[in-house]
Design a protein around this nucleic acid. Structure first.
Length: 454
DNA sequence: TTTTGAGTTGTTCGA
DNA sequence: GTCGAACAACTCAAA
């Protein structure tokens, strides 16, 4: 019998450019590929995300000649049993850096299991890019980006020609039956779909990316997010073909945002739920009620906001531009805390990523890594007119307004037959709530002296 | 140490 | 309709 090592798949569900897989193969005659379904995974992933994962696992299994073991249980117990069963020593993994994942891995190690980390889900692992002056992490994106570029990353690794994996029994094939919820249509999962989509994007979208990425109604974004979330493709693979044009640079910067936020969360683990800028926890917020419910359901009466929320409910995905618009609406028009929206996104996104989600929300709320103007409040109507100028996006997701033509769809209150089909009136007045939001921000400004104690 | 320039994604108002 | 200014003050990064 030859030597064996375990390859524990987590969020690296691919074969190509997989350093931990290469390491496991080079160290042993056979590998034991396993995915573990633990209680935390189900807790932290919504129904659409789980359905996506279930599909991705089948695709990974296909690439492994149906030798992927899928086991329900807690990692420590499952890994110990596997080590014993196959007389395997090392457990190979791709390093993870999210607070919860890193803590779990540390706990596993302290139980006596040896984890061998090779590679990560990033071009440059979180924690590596530091300011040369004092070796502390960056807090501002642009300098981080410059240092990240200068640091550089290695080329994608070649795909192994063959993978020798141990044969499996039916006990080790506990594939979940998580189905896509009724009425929902999610994107195709798996490494092959990821590569196919990226090639399509390279051919049809990349060269216009800088402009097209903002237009909600067209297919102008890369749609790589869910594939990156589950590691079906590595960011190095996306970076490798990029040149120096404006459009390519903008795409490279989007990948760098993902890495920046992973770095920020790694260095500030509590910011998954806590305010990055602590003074914002002192701001006055409203309690979630009917208005929050309307936001969740896509019934705010603001067509661009509602279209976006329904896109999320229908597809488990939302266009990047509209993510900012709905986030701004929740925080600045409804005066709710960003964590409410963050949690809702987590429950519904198939591309949910702890760092990108939490810090994307914090950015919009104004409490994140951004020293930009406090007065940046998105106008849901103007954003719609600018980034969905024909109204196609709204028409697609809000059938109550589908009878309206062109740009007028963003202001049904200005159209004679705007409310033919039971579409709600705006639940708040944007101009009023914008001023209210600015007033509340004014109250927490550092320069403002505290009010006298009565 | 001090100084200087810069900071993803916007909106409104008035000329 | 278009354009530029105003919207604050602060922190960060780097020279």
């Amino acid at each position: 019998m030859g030597t064996r090592s375990i390859l524990w798949f987590r969020r690296d569900l691919r074969i190509s450019d997989h350093p931990a897989l290469v390491a496991a193969l080079s160290e042993s005659d056979e590998i034991v590929p396993v995915f573990i379904i633990d209680s935390k995974l189900k807790e932290r992933t919504g129904a659409k995300g789980l359905a996506y994962l279930a599909q991705s696992l089948h695709h990974l299994d296909d690439s492994l000649d149906n030798k992927l073991q899928v086991i329900n249980g807690e990692p420590i117990e499952v890994l110990k049993k596997l080590q014993k069963k196959y007389d395997a020593q090392a457990v190979h993994i791709s390093a993870e850096y999210e607070p919860f994942c890193a803590a779990r891995d540390t706990e596993i190690e302290s139980s006596g299991i040896k984890l061998v980390r090779t590679g990560s889900a990033y071009a440059i692992a979180p924690g590596r890019v530091l300011k040369p002056s004092d070796q502390t992490p960056y807090r501002v994106y642009t300098p981080f980006y410059r240092a990240w570029l200068a640091h550089g990353w290695r080329k994608p690794q070649v795909r192994p020609k063959s993978i020798a994996a141990v044969s499996v029994d039916s006990d080790s094939r506990q594939f979940p039956d998580w189905k896509v919820p009724a009425g929902v249509s999610i994107t195709q999962a798996g490494e092959e779909a990821a590569m196919k989509r990226f090639k399509h994007f390279q051919k049809n979208g990349l060269d216009n990316y800088d402009e097209a990425r903002n237009l909600a109604a067209i297919d102008g974004t890369s749609k790589m997010s869910a594939h990156l979330t589950w590691g079906e493709i590595h960011p190095r693979t996306l970076l490798a073909p990029l040149g120096q044009s404006k459009a390519h640079e903008v795409f490279r910067k989007e990948i760098a945002w993902r890495e920046f936020y992973a770095d920020v969360l790694f260095n500030n683990p509590k910011t998954e739920t806590d305010y990055y800028a602590p003074q914002f926890s002192k701001m006055r917020y409203d309690k979630p009620g009917k208005q929050f419910k309307a936001w969740c359901e896509g019934k705010t009466g603001y067509p661009f906001v509602d279209a976006a929320m329904r896109q999320l409910l229908n597809e488990g995905w939302m266009h990047n531009r509209t993510r900012m618009v709905v986030a701004s609406f929740l925080v600045k028009d409804l005066h709710l805390e960003w964590q409410l929206g963050e949690r809702f996104f987590r429950e519904h996104l198939v591309d949910y990523d702890v760092a990108s989600n939490a810090h994307g929300w914090q950015w919009t709320a104004g409490c994140g890594t951004d020293a930009s103007p406090y007065y940046r409040v998105f106008n849901p109507v103007e954003q719609g007119k600018r980034f969905d100028e024909n109204g196609d996006y709204v028409r697609k997701y809000v059938p109550e307004l589908a009878h309206l033509k062109g740009i007028e769809i963003h202001e049904p209150w200005n159209v004679l037959d705007g409310y033919l089909k039971d579409y709600p009136q705006p639940i708040v007045d944007h101009a009023t709530e914008r001023l209210e939001s600015l007033a509340r921000l004014d109250e927490i400004k550092a320069s403002k002296p505290l009010p006298p104690i009565k």
